[in-house]
Nucleic acid binder design. Sequence first.
DNA 1: CTATAAATTTAGAATTAGTATAATTCTAAC
DNA 2: GTTAGAATTATACTAATTCTAAATTTATAG
Lengths: 141, 141
Amino acid sequence: MRKLDKSAGKRGFGEPVLTRQRKVVLDVVQSGDTHPTAGEVFAAARKMMPAISFATVYNSLRYLKQAGLVREVAFGNGASRYDRETDRHDHAICSECGTLVDFDLPGTVELIRAAARASRFKAESIHLTLVGLCPQCRAPK
Amino acid sequence: MRKLDKSAGKRGFGEPVLTRQRKVVLDVVQSGDTHPTAGEVFAAARKMMPAISFATVYNSLRYLKQAGLVREVAFGNGASRYDRETDRHDHAICSECGTLVDFDLPGTVELIRAAARASRFKAESIHLTLVGLCPQCRAPK
DNA sequence: CTATAAATTTAGAATTAGTATAATTCTAAC
DNA sequence: GTTAGAATTATACTAATTCTAAATTTATAG
């Protein structure tokens, strides 16, 4: 009786696993500093696995999100973007060119506590987004 | 020669103004504590102005947003929601029931400064969203 | 007063994003 | 090899939002 392991390619009975397609989707999101949309993830995933379908990319992103492996970043415009989930971090969006970058804010443990207190919610996570001008756009050239 | 004033209903040459339709949309967003979607705003606006079109609601929301009178709140799921822009404040979303509430976090002036420093962006605004369990959902009843 | 110009509104088409469905495929357990 | 259950695929569908072109509105210029 073989023990179930969670490596890529194993499916079937029991708990859900990191399948080949999910692995591909995860690799796409984790490689590179971009924050791709689902459509961009699909295009990149196709290069590694031409048969993968659009629906699977969405399903995989949802799975990876709830598994805590990727994060969804949504702002009002267009499509959601996906970000590798390494450590807790924050986002800055350029109001001029739309660039999205990660940054780390110290003292977020205290921040999350303060936010929980102010909102009376039991905090699970906190997301901080700064809107402003990126270094490129703030320097008129 | 009459001087242009910016009261509702005046259009034409020169700068854009708060038209009647935009005023209706603004009123809808400002009345009530809900955070309506564009569709909900449309439904409510229709009661005040039956001829208003869907596109105008979207256009108005975009205008009001960039004018700083309403705020768009987007999370990954479904439609964007709109919030009156009174003072700077933050949002908490219940991961269980989807409730969205406003709350105020003290010390955000320093926070925005720290975020600008960490991101190297010129800050315009900062948005903090807490995901967690609302008071109702955290109390199993 | 009349003509003009610029922005806005309207209605509906078009686009985009994301979800649902049903059939098929895959893999581990037996 | 058969079976069971989850995952994948392809496609259809729904919902959200933007675009387009024509008509409207109204402040200014003539």
